[in-house]
């Protein structure tokens, strides 16, 4: 835990009520875009890069989330490639993995962890 503290900057992304239930929103972080998912059904938060590696579309936050077995996943709205929300691994084969970020909620604010 102390290790994580040292290497991770927590940045306040939005308020809990700004996030949508069982879906994603897009967060601007400096010059990049992060997709933030509130998996209300499982009471889990996930964050990944917003860009889908397939055709490099800024789109993942607009996709549908769900599960394959226990694995939480996101499906890109463009061609329905799916990625694990937990590990970022591409579940439809072929594409490279997406970046994931840790998320925490404190006092009604959602924080995304950026590794230094």
């Amino acid at each position: 835990m102390s290790d994580l503290k040292k290497t991770t900057d927590w940045f306040a992304a939005c308020k809990v009520e700004d996030a949508v239930h069982n879906g994603g929103v897009c967060i601007k972080y400096e010059n990049s875009q992060i997709a933030l998912f509130y998996f209300t059904r499982r009471n889990e938060w996930y964050a990944t890069q917003n860009e889908c590696p397939h055709r490099r579309q800024m789109a993942l936050s607009r996709g549908m989330i769900g599960s394959a077995g226990e694995e939480p996943k996101i499906a890109c709205p463009f061609h329905k490639k799916t990625f694990s929300l937990a590990t970022g691994e591409c579940l439809s084969g072929g594409e490279c993995a997406i970046k994931t970020y840790p998320v925490k909620v404190e006092n009604g604010l959602v924080y995304i962890g950026i590794k230094n």
């Binding site: 949508v20 994603g24 800024m58 789109a59 607009r62 996709g63 549908m64």
Partner: peptide, 22 residues
């Protein structure tokens, strides 16, 4: 309607067809 919005394909969720480039 709340609860059905994110259970839609992107096109239905935003009431418009998504295009190349977003």
């Amino acid at each position: 309607k709340q609860g059905n919005d994110t259970a839609q394909d992107s096109n239905d969720r935003f009431l418009a067809n998504i295009q190349k480039g977003g």
